[in-house]
Amino acid sequence: MIRIGDAPRVRRLLIGAALALTALFLLLPLVAIFAQALMSGIDVYWQNLSSVYTLSAIGLTLLVAAITVPVNLVFGVFLAWLVTRFDFPGRRLLQTLIDIPFAVSPVVAGLVYLLLYGRNGWLGGWLDAHDIQIMFAWPGIVLVTLFVTCPFVARELIPLMQTQGSREEEAAVTLGASGWTIFRRVTLPNIRHALLYGVILTNARAVGEFGAVSVVAGAIRGQTNTLPLQVEQLYQDYNTVGAFTSASLLALLALLTLAAKAALEWRAARRETAT
């Protein structure tokens, strides 16, 4: 079989170019982060890492992810199920609405939430009267992060569930299975890879979101700083090592997520070949 670019020289050139670009654009920055963070030695790195502010930022970032990911997992599955398995008026509109967080700049999203929930906002007065603080506190950060990340799971699932169709589920229901049994034993196993991928994307974005969060967080050190905000703040303070220390944490989180995904996929593949 002859393919385009099959000549050995062309092939070497193409592979070489791909590897070079990957190294330049992906690998090098990653190395740079750690190099910068460790510039002044491991002690300084450790000092920066264990500062109260950094620890608080880590805590807040993990809290946001811990709430956002499960909520959007459930929401995304529910939405994808609704859009692909039922026909109802407004279905197309709903499918378009899902994409709003993709289309809107995160900063705008942050501003909208500020407008709604801020002290002078539409709902702000009522909230203030009941002594509930959402803006400039962690609930606000969680809310905007939820908004920004809500399409990820659904967007991964919808095309897949559309191509798979509902025949297997129909088969299951003719065999007397309850809705929950069908979901657990038929739907979920078929979508688990896409679901996993959606969760990873959601997690990455939840941990790394800057724009929307920066609007509603108010950047109170040790209270409403997430890791990305912390990076930016330290950098503005000319604390390069500190900024890169926090950045290295974010990079580490990303690597961990990817490793977890690879491990899960590897395990799933092994289980399938074993049976």
Binding site: E168, E170, A172, V173, T174, G176, R185, N190, T275
Partner: peptide
């Protein structure tokens, strides 16, 4: 459907692909 006690055979089989 689930209480009608029917057996249904689909055109494209609709077997559960991840099950033996």
């Amino acid at each position: 459907v689930r209480d009608r006690r029917i057996g249904f055979v689909f055109q494209h089989y609709a077997l559960f692909r991840h099950m033996t």
